[in-house]
């Protein structure tokens, strides 16, 4: 049996909105580690890894490890019916082929339950080794989303380069070229407005802007985003979910043939 009560139900709504366009079906795993998911997009370019730790739930009960296969579009449809301030509880009985989402309004004057069919999903799990990245950039998530959106109106790919100068986002297309350079900036009013660049060695990687734009749907989950980059390796784009966990996207680079 599983019962997870999340007071900040809006968080789960935002999580679904951030991944439903990238991934169709996924197994949500519930264990002592937390409520987690690892899934790949259909074109095998990106993997999303989500972790919501037990401490973030008002009630976190699962008496054994449970894996629940869900269609993310259908799950998003159901969660759209919850208010942003609602408390969301997930419930599943042992051996059941359904999961129930219960939505409670903050004043407890409206309670709804939605039952969704589960599905069997054969998914391969990937192991992500700890890596020493050539460069790690932390910047405001809204700024990163803005840059990806702006560049995608010019070109299809973005070259992300980190040098002593800062982090450069470049694209080229039929109408011309675009370059945006963000320099380290810690002289800000709030820590989440800072741009912090840790560079062990210069790095330059190329990514499809379609995918980068898709990842930025997670922007509402966090004020900051962290890009971890190493030559020839997938980028890790991480949005921390305050006091609960994270959503990480591993995005394969484009490689010179």
């Amino acid at each position: 049996m599983l019962e997870l009560r999340l007071v900040q139900g809006g968080l789960l709504k935002k999580v679904l909105e951030s991944i439903k366009d990238l991934v169709n079906d996924a197994n949500f795993d519930c264990s002592a580690t937390g409520f987690s998911l690892q899934a790949m997009d259909s074109s095998q370019v990106a993997v999303v890894a989500l972790l919501l730790r037990p401490e973030g739930f008002e009630r976190y009960w699962c008496d054994r490890n449970i894996s629940m296969g869900m269609n993310l579009n259908n799950m998003a449809k159901m969660l759209k019916c919850a208010g942003n301030d609602d408390i969301i509880t997930l419930k599943a009985e042992d051996g059941s082929d359904t999961v129930t989402f219960m939505f409670e309004s903050p004043t407890q004057d409206k309670i709804a339950d939605f039952e969704m069919k589960l599905m069997d999903i054969n998914s391969e799990r990937l192991g992500f080794p700890e890596a020493d990245y050539h460069a790690i950039v932390r910047m405001p998530s809204s700024e990163f989303a803005r840059i990806c959106k702006d560049l995608s109106s010019i070109g299809n790919t973005v070259v992300i380069s980190v040098t002593k100068e800062g982090v450069r986002f470049s694209t080229r297309g039929d109408i011309g070229t675009a370059n945006v350079v963000c320099r380290q900036n810690t002289a800000v009013d709030k820590p989440e407005e800072a741009t912090i660049i840790e560079m062990n060695e210069p790095v330059s990687l190329t990514f499809g802007l379609r995918y980068m734009n898709s990842l930025t749907k997670a922007t509402p989950l966090s004020n900051t985003v962290t890009l971890s980059l190493s030559s020839g390796l997938p980028a890790v784009v991480e949005y921390r979910i305050a006091e609960m966990g994270y959503i990480r996207f591993y995005l394969a680079p484009k490689i010179e043939e």
């Binding site: 370019v45 192991g127 992500f128 190329t206 995005l251 394969a252 680079p253 490689i255």
Partner: peptide, 14 residues
Amino acid sequence: DPKQGNIMSFFKRV
């Protein structure tokens, strides 16, 4: 143009 890499080629299955 560079070719899109496959994410499966970078990580081991566990």
